[in-house]
Design a protein around this nucleic acid. Structure first.
Lengths: 222, 222
DNA sequence: TTCGATCTCAAAATCGATTTATTCATACCA
DNA sequence: TGGTATGAATAAATCGATTTTGAGATCGAA
């Protein structure tokens, strides 16, 4: 089975798409202050690109929901809002729960292997805490692999989008090591339940997983 | 209650956003052939705009899912694909069903009024068949009003996106007058069930409504 | 003082031209 | 013949400069 990751055609990337990818990462990782107005001329230097590709990237990010576009007034980073976090987390529970049920029904042996591999890579990565970005990458990848065979391209698309939104909050929040350990353990349990094809238990655990992450992420809204 | 429609701030629209709106309409209404490669220089003349705002609009449309962007190879109109229509219709059933349940639980008296008004406007409009675009506008507006008080901005956003995708297929398909009459009648029945706060029946009817629309829309594939 | 109009500056949006990449046709060689 | 290199021609992407807009300062009158 082919577990599609973020970008299939990296070959001959355009300047605009490279900036899009880089800024998406930076926005999700909280490297821009929430609510901040985006200084286009500043970004031009920061990413070493011209105005046209930069503006195209900003337009895409706005359509994707990681920036807010105000006509004639440029772009700004969305504020962190408790209400919106509730919304995002709630939608994650609904959509990822739905996707996981379907994935467990559809997933084949190849998926089982991918899932075990992704979980293992994630587990190994969090031992070396110095590379947070790498851990984040593997974490996102694990969750994507978990629901990948759900059979709906649109569902996966929405889930990806919600993940990016959610992570922006989570990465702004202070870490909670005790909860982090529980969350990490749940990744392994999710794999077990998925392999056992225990649809109900797996869904319940995933929803609990999201709920606990949500409580951590709440720390960003104070 | 405030039923937010498509655009809140029309004031001082930018060229890029006007082109975005116009092209979104045209794409949803099937005024571009499916699978067709987008000739940027042609569009420049068609919409009477320069290259920069046009490209920004295309980038947004691609992020929104109404165009496909291929690096260094420009943009193309997505193909009509039976599998994808299945996916879109299925997701509409799930998400709009979910949203309707919540809307019925949350909707207040103002919503009831808006809903009656939207249904009435729609009913009156389809008597004068010469203005299809106007009917489409009111139809979309009715369905949006129906689920508006669901309480989730993200759910509404996804539903809007799926509607645009779905309508692209439906508007490409030949009309089926007999089914159209049933669908029109269902709009009124949906309002009745919503006002009676009959969550289960309303959801079932909405899912049936989408299913019948889907069967019409199937006419566009092959 | 306070309100409103006008001006100024900085930033956003747009334009026209240039650069870069892809496609398709043609020629060359194994 | 089949495959691969070469070279316009075409289209996409990017650049640098210009135009337009919005925010804030300044002035003047009630």
């Amino acid at each position: 089975m082919d577990i599609p990751q973020r970008k299939e055609r990296k070959e001959s990337a355009t300047t605009s798409s490279r900036v899009f990818d880089a800024m998406r990462q930076d926005l999700v990782n909280g490297r821009f202050a929430a609510g901040e107005k985006v200084a286009i001329n500043g970004l031009k230097e920061q990413y070493r690109v011209g105005l046209s590709p930069l503006r195209e990237a900003l337009n895409r990010l706005a359509a994707y929901g990681l920036l807010v576009q105000e006509n004639q007034r440029g772009f700004r980073v969305p504020r962190l809002d408790r209400r919106e976090l509730d919304d995002i987390a709630g939608m994650r529970r609904e959509l990822e729960g739905m996707a996981l049920e379907r994935a467990i029904l559809n997933g084949d042996a190849e998926w089982e292997s991918e899932l075990l591999a992704a979980a293992h890579r994630l587990k190994r990565a969090d031992l070396s805490l110095d590379k947070v970005d790498e851990w984040e990458r593997l974490h996102g990848r694990f969750h994507r692999t978990l629901v990948a065979p759900c059979g709906s391209v649109w569902l996966l698309r929405f889930i990806d989008q919600l993940h990016d939104q959610f992570d922006r909050y989570r990465r702004m929040a202070p870490g909670v090591p005790a909860v982090r350990r529980i969350l990490d353990a749940q990744h392994g349990e999710l794999v077990e339940l998925a392999l056992e094809r225990d649809v109900k238990a797996a869904r319940a655990l995933l929803e609990d997983h999201i709920e606990r992450s949500y409580e951590v992420a709440l720390g960003s809204c104070k």
